[in-house]
Design a protein around this nucleic acid. Structure first.
Length: 109
DNA sequence: GTTATGACTATGG
DNA sequence: GCCATAGCCATAA
């Protein structure tokens, strides 16, 4: 497990990769960092989420984060995120898979 | 070591 | 679509 900071940095890095108008899921981040599981991602967000665009992180079914779902809704309106009539995000068009922050983005070429 | 909890996910009714 | 259950990993008491 190394120090918690390292895991935090990786998780936050993935969230920062999510461009405006897009969202990602806890599972996607957990898969990108390849450590622990989605619950650990949520735990990090609870402690350091204030340092990133936490509203761009939603549940696997597109439902908004329970801490400040109202705040997130406002952010989606400004970013133009694909919001479904049910109040959830349309992952079909807004889902964004962040890349693992470990290796460099440019492999070759 | 066990029990309880958490910004989760998948399955079944 | 909503509720309940099982699985997951780490932290705290």
């Amino acid at each position: 497990m190394r120090h918690p900071e390292e895991y935090v940095e990786d998780v936050l890095s993935c969230v920062e990769q999510v461009p405006p108008g897009r969202v990602t899921t806890y599972g996607a981040i957990a898969e990108a960092v390849g450590r622990y599981g989605p619950r650990r991602v949520g735990n990090v967000m609870a402690g350091h989420g204030a340092a990133v665009a936490w509203w761009r992180v939603v549940r696997a079914d597109g439902s908004l984060p329970p801490s400040h779902d109202g705040e997130a809704r406002q952010a989606y309106l400004e970013e133009g995120t694909a919001l479904r009539p049910s109040g959830r995000v349309d992952l079909e068009v807004a889902f964004f898979q962040p890349a693992p922050p470990g290796p460099p983005a440019m492999i070759r070429g």
